[in-house]
Nucleic acid binder design. Structure first.
Length: 732
RNA sequence: GCCACUUUAGCUCAGCGGUAGAGCGAUGCUUUCGUAAAGCAUAGGUCCAGGGUUCAAAUCCCUGAAGUGGCUCCA
């Protein structure tokens, strides 16, 4: 009979099977009252789960022992809340709404559903849905689980006519889907999750109340949800498959109490104030103009200061590491990108090619169709086919892409990548193994046609400047070069005080054939990436299938104010490019060898990085990054002249400063400067002028530091800026 | 690209069939002031664009653009 081991190591034995709730009751009535679910041998389960064998049991309650919200409890609450919301939506819109998939997420839950033809769900329905959710929670109905044999369950679902649920059931049973035939369907459930029964959860009494096919687990009754509400609407695809059914995704969130839900909503509102788009407007850091184009950033003077400071900073670090700075144009011939393989492989996410006017006129006079024009742009010459196929040793360019030279349409592309230009620089001169590695760096601006719905302030744009570099090295040099890249990233993040990032190592998907390069090379490169990542001292994940087609990579990922993840820096190993561009160096054996290329961009793009940085600092930048480092505030116009001398002294030391010579009183000037988040205010009145002093006020400090000699202030601030200190540290 | 929502003064927003509004900002005048806004005055608008309904449209309908939150994508 079961011996139950509790988290503190103690055991309880029972002489017959018991439910987790009964164990909780045996421990104490308060625990039983607080219990929302349980973990059996680490697996989250219903509180009603019957334990008939020895096991480790933990009772899940709202809060952990140190009074923190329990993640498992939130999971249970939100999973149940998803059911409650679905019921509410069916009550409001009608039972014809077909439910598909409704899991909990990090911040709440969603439910994907297919609406009956002609019906739409809009935010106008939210009040009614929220009201119904509140009612169901108030009714405190018990959540009842029941299981039926597979056959019976499938028959039940078939009779209900919901193909999505039927599909879920078939996958849970490990059966091939009879209704979904998307490419990604290949047995996602896996053998471990196969079962012989299907489970249903009723929100109340089976047969009497609302119910749903569900694996569970759930809280014991709807009242245990506390507070839930619907948040937003989105569209989604069945199985995330673009070619499959479009579903309506309804997002909601739930918390153990109304107070916690309110706190979450408040926190969301506050996060919005820290959004880089809001701060960017307030502090005039950047501008996006419809007339210029979607996703194209205009860097205003203030934002340009920040960007320039970062570029100067990283440029200095690159020199220390032996990089060479290069400059290359923003466009290149179409054939260049056919050689690199970017065109037309990534055609959908590039700006269309630029075709010379004469060529266009000629095509028009010939009555050429758009399809024909596309064909002529996409095609390659037999010459290019031959050389690429020879170099890569396989059928890289199939015969059907080859068209006669006189049919080829010449054109240029706004560059989507900097690497082809850099490859051409490397290839423009002979290289000895003694010169390797060759590190070419450029703040290279690239253009990509991101889907319009993806664009987002500075973090997802169509034109951006990578802090790009390509390291042409020997295979033996790969580990050391990766290490060098990572140490650069570490230096940058440390200087900026950014600690909250994660590292992702993208590896091959062992089953896919899309990769180029030999298995041996891949093994070595993946090993080098993993070893380098281990030395970082930051947690990292290995993600098979996330590699680029030409090599493994290490990515740096950060979160924005509302918790979205963005990839910043990346380090990628590439065996492909040197082959395609026929690059070589002369080895000690006096023979030509292929270099390996490492692509790396520690900031990723200046646009995204600055966007993330604005949110990281909430606009309150350290002095060295601030567009305006000091604002001089004369008490009245009588001290304007002295203030002018203060400005001169600051500017002579290279400090960015302006004077507020307006007719506001000092209170007003202080408020305005504080709102602009300027690091330092130098307040000057007659008393300061007499002593050649300034009264310095530091951002975030209520009072000034007292009067200090002007030259001391200038020297202290200049030091702080030169050393790129992360915090404001000028002291009297 | 798909779904929902949004778009009114430089900024934040109200108005939602009947003469276009507020606060902040800007400009001018008064005030000459010691640390998060002194007072008064003035200017400022194709109400995102185009079409439609109506005696009358910022307001209702259609189409499009841009933005926001998701989905999908991200060399």
């Amino acid at each position: 009979m079961p011996i139950i081991t509790l988290p503190d190591g103690s055991t309880k034995s029972f002489d017959k099977p018991v439910s987790a709730l009964e164990v909780a009751q045996a421990i104490g009535p308060r625990l039983a009252q607080a219990a929302l679910g349980c973990k059996v041998n680490g697996e989250l389960r219903d509180l009603s789960t019957v334990l008939d064998q020895d096991c480790a049991l933990a009772i899940v309650t709202e809060k952990t022992r140190d009074k923190q919200p329990d993640k498992d409890a939130l999971y249970l609450i939100r999973h149940t809340a998803a059911h409650v919301m679905a019921e509410a939506i069916q009550d409001v819109l009608g039972p014809q709404v077909q439910l598909a998939y409704g899991p909990p997420t990090d911040t709440g839950f969603f439910y994907d559903m297919a609406l009956p033809p002609g019906k739409t769900l809009s935010t106008d329905h939210f009040d009614a849905i929220n009201k119904r959710i509140a009612q169901i929670i108030a009714e405190n109905r018990p959540i009842t689980r029941y299981e039926v044999p597979a056959e019976q369950g499938l028959a039940k679902l078939k009779s209900e006519g919901n193909k999505y649920k039927l599909d879920n059931a078939e996958r849970a049973l490990g059966l091939p889907s009879s209704v979904y035939n998307g490419a990604k369907s290949a047995d996602q459930a896996g053998p471990a999750q196969r079962s012989t029964h299907l489970s249903f959860y009723a929100t109340g009494q089976p047969g009497k109340n609302w119910e749903d096919l569900c694996r569970g687990p759930h809280v014991p009754s709807t009242g245990r949800i506390g507070a839930a509400r619907v948040m937003s609407l989105a569209s989604s695809y069945w199985h995330g498959d673009e070619n499959s059914d479009r579903l309506t995704r309804v997002y909601g969130t739930a918390f153990p109490s109304q107070a916690e839900l309110d706190a979450y909503l408040n926190q969301l509102a506050e996060a919005k104030q820290r959004d880089h788009r809001v701060i960017g407007k307030q502090l005039r850091l950047f501008h996006i103009d419809e007339d210029v184009g979607q996703g194209l950033i205009l860097w205003t003077p203030n934002g340009s200061v920040m960007r320039q400071e970062l570029m100067t900073f990283i440029g200095g670090e690159l020199r220390k590491q032996g990089y060479h700075q290069v400059f290359t144009p923003h466009i290149g011939r179409l054939e260049l990108y056919k050689t690199s393989g970017h065109f037309p492989y990534y055609k959908e996410s590039q700006y269309p090619p630029i075709v010379e006017r004469d060529a266009l006129d000629k095509l028009m006079s010939e009555g050429c169709s758009c399809a024909e024009m596309t064909h002529r742009l996409d095609g390659v010459s037999a010459r290019l086919q031959r050389s690429l196929n020879e170099r890569t040793g396989k059928n890289t360019i199939p015969d059907d892409r080859v068209i006669p030279e006189d049919m080829l349409l010449e054109g240029f592309m706004l560059r989507p990548m900097n690497c082809p230009h850099h490859a051409k620089i490397f290839g423009s001169a002979p290289h000895s193994y003694r010169d390797m590695p060759v590190r070419l760096a450029e703040f290279g601006t690239v253009y990509r046609w991101e889907q319009s719905g993806e664009l987002n302030g500075m973090t997802r744009v169509r034109g951006f400047t990578q802090d790009d570099a390509h390291l042409f090295c020997t295979e033996e040099q790969i580990p050391a070069e990766i290490q060098g890249c990572l140490s650069l990233v570490k230096t940058i993040f440390a200087t900026l005080g950014m600690k909250d990032y994660r590292v992702r190592v993208g590896l091959r998907d062992p089953d896919s054939k899309k990769y180029t390069g030999s298995k041996e090379n891949w093994d070595a490169a993946e090993k080098a990436c993993l070893e380098a990542a281990q030395t970082l001292g930051v947690s990292f994940t290995q993600e098979p299938g996330e590699a680029a087609f030409y090599g493994p990579k290490i990515d740096f990922v950060v979160k924005d104010v509302i918790g979205r993840e963005w990839q910043l820096g990346t380090v990628q190993v590439d065996y492909n490019m040197a082959i395609r561009f026929d690059l070589s160096y002369i080895g000690p054996d006096n023979k030509a060898h292929r270099p390996v290329v490492i692509h790396r961009a520690p900031f990723g793009s200046m646009e995204r990085f600055c966007g993330v940085l604005i949110e990281h600092f909430a606009g309150a930048f350290p002095a060295w990054l601030s567009p305006e480092q000091v604002r001089v505030l004369p008490i009245s116009e009588k001290t304007n002249e002295y203030a002018g001398r203060v400005i001169d002294a600051l500017r002579a030391a290279g400090i960015r400063t302006t004077m507020d010579a307006g007719s506001d009183r000092i209170q007003g000037k202080v408020k305005i400067a504080a709102e602009m988040k300027i690091p330092y205010m130098a307040i000057v009145g007659p008393r300061d002028a007499e002593q050649n002093a300034v009264s310095v006020r530091v951002r975030g400090v209520e009072k000034d530091l007292g009067s200090m000699p002007l030259d001391r202030f200038v020297a202290a601030l200049a030091d702080e800026i030169r050393e790129r200190r992360a915090t404001l540290g000028v002291k009297p």
